[in-house]
């Protein structure tokens, strides 16, 4: 599914007001793999949050296919996140009370998909963690946790995958693994993938790079 931002502007009302995004218009074609980069504070995270419906733009529009999503109600937005968007965060954000398999199965159960556990195990197998299914997050290394997070993001076969600094908390080897996973899923399953990162490994690879500076596209 294509993902499109039109004139996105986000102003945070802190002190005199900070313009995190300034009229950003960008089109992510279906199945594309885009890296959004730029110095910290350039608006990468804000862009991804707004694209994924985690917050709303001050001005501008977000389109997912033919659907305008920045005006959806909270309930509809939640269902959109559940069914159509997969998130990967810098800090992994696994639920600490749940095992790896339960973390992956959670969106499946929420969406009332049958055989949630089987599908979760299959996904963990695909990210190379079949043996760690019943481990809790604190028993896993950072790289393993992030791979669980990738598996969870893909659980409901989303049309869009948004990864915000997915390698930011990882050593370079684990980071490379996670990037390879995101690339592989993008190639094999065709999710429109947007990765915010300033990881040189990611930037060196072929593909589209979108550079942001002070909330504008360079």
């Amino acid at each position: 599914m294509s993902l499109r931002a039109v004139d996105l502007t986000k102003i945070y009302l802190v002190g005199q007001g900070v313009k995190a995004l300034d009229q950003v218009s960008v089109d992510f074609p279906p199945g594309s793999f885009t890296v959004v980069t730029g110095p910290s504070g350039c608006g990468k995270s804000t862009l991804l949050s707004i694209l994924g419906g985690l917050e709303r733009p001050t001005y501008g529009e977000v389109w997912m296919g033919e659907r305008r999503v920045d005006r959806l109600g909270e309930g509809e937005l939640a269902r959109l996140r559940l069914g159509s968007i997969g998130f990967v965060f810098q800090a992994f954000h696994l639920l600490a009370d749940l095992t790896a398999a339960e973390n992956v199965a959670m969106p499946l159960r929420l969406a009332r998909r049958p055989a949630a556990r089987e599908r979760a195990l299959e996904l963990l197998e695909q990210v190379g963690l079949g043996q760690r299914a019943d481990h809790y997050p604190h028993q896993l290394s950072g790289g393993e946790q992030q791979r669980v997070a990738v598996a969870r993001a893909l659980a409901n076969r989303p049309a869009v995958v948004l990864a915000d600094e997915p390698t930011g908390n990882l050593d370079s080897r684990s980071g490379t693994d996670v990037i390879a996973l995101l690339r592989r899923f993008n190639r094999e399953q065709g999710q429109t993938t947007v990765v915010a990162s300033h990881d040189p490994v990611l930037l060196a690879e072929p593909g589209r790079v979108l550079r942001l500076r002070d909330g504008r596209v360079e």
Binding site: L54, A78, H93, R152
Partner: peptide, 16 residues
């Protein structure tokens, strides 16, 4: 707070 954020990001509704 963060756990609630995660749940919401994954598609839980506020009511849930």
């Amino acid at each position: 707070r963060r756990q609630l954020g995660i749940a919401r990001a994954l598609g839980w509704e506020t009511g849930q």
